[in-house]
Amino acid sequence: MFYKTQFNGYSVKFSPYNEGRIAVATAQNFGIIGNGRQYVLDVTPQGLREVAAFDTVDGLYDCTWCEGNENVLASASGDGSVKVWDIAAPPQKNPIRSFEEHGHEVYCVNWNLVNRDCFLSASWDDTIKLWNLQSPGSLRTFAEHRYCCYAVAWCPTNGETFASASGDCTLKLWDIRQPASTLTIRAHEFEVLSCDWNKYEDFTLVTGSVDKTMRVWDIRQPSVPVRIMPGHNYAVRKVICSPHAGNLVASCSYDMTVCFWDIKAPGEPLVQRWAHHTEFAVGLDLSVLQEGMWASTGWDELVYVWHQSQDPRS
C-alpha cells in the first residue's frame, strides 16, 4: 500500500510501539529550499491514513521514534534544529521541544534503544550531538569528523556506544564515556552516507557510500572490510540491518531501487531488488514488530508499506 505525501519523502520509521504506525519526514522542493512536514501514518484496512502532521519552516531529513514514549518522535531539520513532537499533545503545544544548536542541516536523528531517555543528531556542521528531553541544551557534542556527518546509529546492545558515518569517508565508533572516538575506519574512498549495526553481532557494522557499494565491517579487524557489495547504480543512501536475522540487510539508493541482501551468502549477496519508486529512494525501514514488513519513501512523494513477500505496489 502507498500514501502520497505533499512534499518529497526523506525518511520513514516504523513505531517501536504500534504495529503498522510509521513516521515520515518530508521536505518541499527536494529538500533544497522550502518547508517540511512530519507525518505520522497508520496502516488501516483502507490503506495508510494520516494520524498527525506537523509543519516546519525548513525541510525535514530524518525522524526517529522515542523509545520511551509511544507518542513522541523527533525530526531532523534543514535549519539546524531538532524538533520533538508529541502526537498526544494538542497542536498548539507542538513541537514540544526545538533544539537549536547545530550550525547547518541536521541529517539524522537516532534514539537510544537501550538507554531510552536520550538520542543523537548528526549534522552537516560535522558534529554529532547527544540530547535528552529533560535538558534544555545538548548533553555533549562530538566534533571529530572533518566533513558532513550523515548518519549515526546506536549500538543495539550497549547504550553507551554508537557509530557515525561521514562525508570525510570515515566510519567512527564512539563510547559516550570516552573523551574521543574509540575507532576510526577509513571505510570508503567516497562519502559514507549511512551506517547500521548488526542486531545479532555487535562487532559487525554495514556502511553505504557514494561509491555505490555497501561494505561489511568487523570492528575487531577494521583494516579491511569483511565484504564489499556492489549492486546499486548510484550512491547508497541508507543501509539497515534486519532486526530479525543477522545476515539480512536492506538498502535504498539514488538509483531509485530498494534492495535486500544476504551478507553471509557464499555467492551473490543480492536477494531481491524492488523498483517501485520513480525518483530517488532515500527513506527505508524494517519493522521490528512485524517480521518482513518494509517501508520506503522517496522523492516521488510516495510512501510504501509492504510485506517482503509481496509487490509494494499491490
Binding site: Y147, G167, D168, C169, E189, F190, E191, L193, V210, D211, K212, Y234, A235, R237, Y254
Partner: peptide
C-alpha cells in the same frame, strides 16, 4: 551533486 557524481571529498 556530490552524491550523484561521486566526486571524492578527499
Amino acid at each position: 551533486r556530490r552524491h550523484l557524481t561521486g566526486k571524492s571529498e578527499e
